[in-house]
Simulated scan of single mutants.
Amino acid sequence: MKLQNTRAEHLNTFTAYGDGYVSVNGIRHACNLAVLPDRLLPQWTQASFETLSVADFELLAGLDADIVLLGTGKRLRFPRPELLQPLVRVQRGLEVMDLAAACRTYNVLVGEGRRVAAGLLIA
């Protein structure tokens, strides 16, 4: 699905998503990645949802973001509570949603000038 929005200049936004991919600024990505308004972290994790680890969430907790979105693929799934401890320690908000909702929500928050990061599980 293509997303139409008024793209903030020089900021990363999602321009499309579909089965097995997202597009950021018109560039297609088919691997897990983390997206911030000012940078991309391709291959944020090699994990599947089932194999996410505390280390994956430590990386997200270390990003300069007030809120972290976790896109869990085609369907909404909640990570085990113990995985969230790095985010709790640094008092970062976490919103868990499916991949499509994470892309749309990220774009809205970037458009509002919020400091947001999205960790996306593509596969």
Rank of each mutant, 00 (worst) to 15 (best):
R39F: 08
V116K: 07
R80W: 02
V96E: 11
A55P: 01
L63H: 00
L63A: 03
W44Q: 11
V35P: 07
G18S: 11
N5S: 13
L120R: 02
N32M: 12
V24C: 11
A8H: 08
T15C: 06
L3W: 05
R80N: 08
A117S: 11
Q4N: 12
V96P: 05
F78I: 12
Q43Y: 13
L70K: 06
T45I: 07
E50K: 12
L60P: 00
Q85Y: 03
Q46T: 13
S23V: 00
L11W: 01
R7T: 04
S23Q: 15
A101S: 15
L60K: 00
L109R: 09
T105K: 10
P86I: 06
T13C: 14
V96D: 10
G62I: 00
L70E: 10
A100L: 03
R7W: 13
A123N: 15
L33S: 07
G18R: 07
P37H: 06
A123Q: 13
E58D: 09
A102M: 05
A101W: 01
D66H: 11
K2E: 14
V90D: 05
W44S: 14
A16W: 02
L33W: 02
D19T: 11
D56T: 02
A34C: 15
L87A: 05
T13R: 03
D19A: 14
A65R: 01
C31Q: 15
G71A: 09
Q91F: 10
L52D: 09
G93W: 08
K74W: 00
L84M: 14
G20E: 10
G26T: 07
E82P: 01
L70Y: 07
A61L: 04
R77D: 05
I27R: 14
K74P: 00
A55Q: 14
P37W: 02
P79M: 08
C31T: 14
M97I: 03
G18D: 12
L94R: 07
Q43W: 12
